[in-house]
Each structure stands twice: as C-alpha cells, then as structure tokens.
Design a protein around this nucleic acid. Structure first.
Lengths: 114, 114
DNA sequence: GCAAAACTCAACCAAACGGTTGAATATACC
DNA sequence: GGTATATTCAACCGTTTGGTTGAGTTTTGC
C-alpha cells in the first residue's frame, strides 16, 4: 500500500517529534542503541519522565525496546520517520517530486542500503 | 545560517503537523489560497475552531494570512516545512543523503521552479 | 444607516501532556 | 536469600489542546 499515509500514525509521529527532549533522544539513538538509564543520564528530569517519553516514541514507531535481562535496550526505527518525511515532501518545493524517482535517487545516494 | 535548526520553531512546526485537521488544511492550501470561511467549510466543526487551527499554523510559520476587506486569505508557506524536513532527513535511510545532490535532483524533477 | 458577512475574542470544558514522587516489579550479584 | 540495579506503575498536579458557544469587530452592500 505504497503512498497510503495512515493518519493516526502520522499524528503520533509528528506529536512525538514536537518535543525537544524526544528529538534529542532520537539523536542520541542515532549513534547507538542505549539502555533506558543511559538515555536518561544527560537530562535533568526523572527516569520516570524519560520512560514516558520512550513510550511515546515507541507508540509512534520511532523506536523499539527490547528487554535483555534487567536492561531495556532502545533502538531507533527510522522507517516511521520515512512516512512522515514523504508526507512533508508533498509540499512546497517538493510538490511535484516523483516519489519513485526519489526512491531511485536515494538508492544511488546511499552507501549500504538496498 | 544554513543548517541551524531552531528548536522552538521545530517544536511548533511538528506540533502543528500533529493534527489531522491542520494537515488537511495544508493540503487544501496546496491547491490555492483560501478565505477562512472556505477553509472551514468541509470540516464538521465551528469556524472559531478552524480559526484557532489557522493561528497555530500561522505561529508555526506554515501559513500566512492577509486581510483584504473583510476576507482573510490564507496562503501556504512551505519554507517552514523545509527545516523540519531537513531535520528528519538526518535520520535513518536519509542519513547519508548529500543535500546538495538532493537539491539538484529536485531541480531536475520539478517542472517550473528555479 | 443598518443588516449581513467574515472573522476573532473570551470564557468555558474535558482530555491529554509533561513533569513529579513513591511504590512495585524484575533481574543480577554475592 | 537478600540487596542493589533497572525500569515501570500509579497517583497527583499545573498547563496546554481542541473543541464549544456567544458576544464583539470590521467591512460590505443596499
């Protein structure tokens, strides 16, 4: 179902991105997977607050969490960003972009993927 | 100041995009500039509610409003989306995208612009 | 000048958000 | 088994969000 942009999903993705703490978390996870405690470390707020932020990021599909032992590992899931990014590209200077050509462009530009 | 992504601005853009009514309004404005009353027409909510949505879109920089007579015209401002879009491209499969090459790609793909 | 049109403002409301603290739950380690 | 670690749960709190309604403001047209 290419090109079908699920509205509730977009709601959740954009809402998740609207918070600077959550965007910072995503940036951190870009480097590497992290435990919840380590994610929380640089922030001046409680671990519980970070835990809630991670739930919101998880429900938006932007991260996944995998529990291994007593540690919950957080992993970036960039695919969720993709739908939102493509939705945005339907505007403005991106208006008339041929998405298939866009995909081909990405494939040629990216080193490892696909 | 290329590449400087203003955090509060991103907050407002993403928050504005997190609502389906507001995304629908943006899609409508993609077609043409519209009066507030005409923007409100297809929605099953009060004009005042739509007026508030337009304020939120305006504060995010996604639209501008120009009053001509008693009619307030709403106009899409896609530049605000651009920063957010570029922020998103720093993730996932867009990570390694050469933005200059991306711009060149857009120029070749778009019929009228630049 | 007066009524209709096109909004916006103000007050209100329920629900969601973003944070807190303290208790609960697993798991790991000695 | 008991204690420390990692994380979530639950209750609470003030603020924001997304809607309502009704009144106010400006402009247009007869």
């Amino acid at each position: 179902m290419k090109g079908m942009h699920n509205a509730p999903a977009l709601d959740m993705v954009f809402a998740a991105l609207a918070d600077p703490t959550r965007r910072a978390i995503l940036s951190m996870l870009l480097e590497d997977d992290m435990a919840v405690t380590d994610v929380a470390e640089p922030f001046e707020m409680s671990l519980a607050a970070i835990s809630k932020h991670l739930v919101i990021l998880g429900r938006a599909g932007l991260i996944t969490q995998e529990r291994r032992g007593r540690v919950t590992w957080c992993k970036l899931e960039p695919d969720a960003l993709r739908d939102a990014s493509i939705w945005m590209q339907s505007f403005g200077q991106f208006e008339a972009v041929n998405l298939d050509a866009f995909e081909r462009f990405l494939k040629t530009e990216l080193p490892d993927e696909g």
